[in-house]
Design a protein around this nucleic acid. Structure first.
Ligand SMILES: [Mn+2]
Ligand SMILES: [Mn+2]
Ligand SMILES: [Zn+2]
Ligand SMILES: [Zn+2]
Lengths: 133, 133
DNA sequence: ACAAAGAACGATAACTATTATCAATATCAA
DNA sequence: TTGATATTGATAATAGTTATCGTTCTTTGT
């Protein structure tokens, strides 16, 4: 049973009322600006506790973990390697295939993470302009 | 054009004649035991250069990057969260779906990484024994 | 209500993987 | 050969995260 302290509630509220993928620093900075300053260690611990309780979810990128609302349900991500923008998708066929693959290999799947890397639409347009100019 | 120095060749050879997913430390340690000691920075730089040249490939796990032979072609991974064991698979349906998803979202995909987490067969058996005993 | 006992907090030290720096070598090219 | 360029290795620095520890809540039993 997670204890929802004022600090954890502040983290949870901020994540729940936004639609971003936050890292710990961003969260701490934003809370600080809102007059709810909390120690960076508390942020890390709070995030871990909240995720454990299923109140938020995360994705592990190459350098850092990013957290988001859990009330969207499961989905996977497209990450723009140029601007860092993150888009979301969920493909039930992919999800099913994963189950099948795991089963075939006698592997008891508990989770997965699919990241698609590339260039987002807006960054693609930027590149074209560069060439034209 | 990558320059295949003796150091880089040593790294490449070791990776090519094995079937593991190596991290930088493991590689450096193993090379050292084979009388081919090289600085850890050289290992990191060599790995990056070799990957750039397409001679090896890597997967980014939560904590560290792991490298493996490139001559197996692309595939994805099942990672046992108990023993760390890594199994491989490639599902063409999943691969195609990813292309489709990216296209639908006007996203120019350049790569992807799919990790399936869970408990491998051998660890599953271990757990059963624990309960029986 | 009161006094442990147990959690959580915040400051900060510690840790891990990786990259940056820089002087010394090695390799390439004219 | 000689100067330009690239690579190496030792080590400092960096980034994200976890561990430590004394302090400050909460909870629980009386
Ligand atoms: Mn998301
Ligand atoms: Mn592999
Ligand atoms: Zn972009
Ligand atoms: Zn296992």
């Amino acid at each position: 049973m997670i204890r929802l302290t004022v600090q954890r509630q502040a983290i949870l509220d901020l994540i729940n009322r936004s639609n971003q993928h936050w890292d710990a620093e961003e969260l701490a900075r934003c809370l600080g600006q809102n007059g709810e300053q909390l120690g960076i260690a508390t942020v890390y611990r709070g995030l871990a506790a909240l995720e454990n309780a299923g109140l938020i979810q995360s994705i592990q990128l190459a350098d850092k973990k990013r957290y988001e609302r859990a009330n969207k349900g499961h989905h996977d991500h497209l990450v723009c390697t140029k601007c860092g923008d993150i888009k979301e998708f969920c493909d039930s066929e992919i999800e099913m295939r994963q189950q099948q693959v795991a089963q075939d290999l006698a592997f008891h799947m508990t989770g997965h993470q699919l990241l698609i890397f590339g260039i987002c639409e807006s960054c693609s347009k930027d590149s074209q302009e560069d060439k034209t100019a």
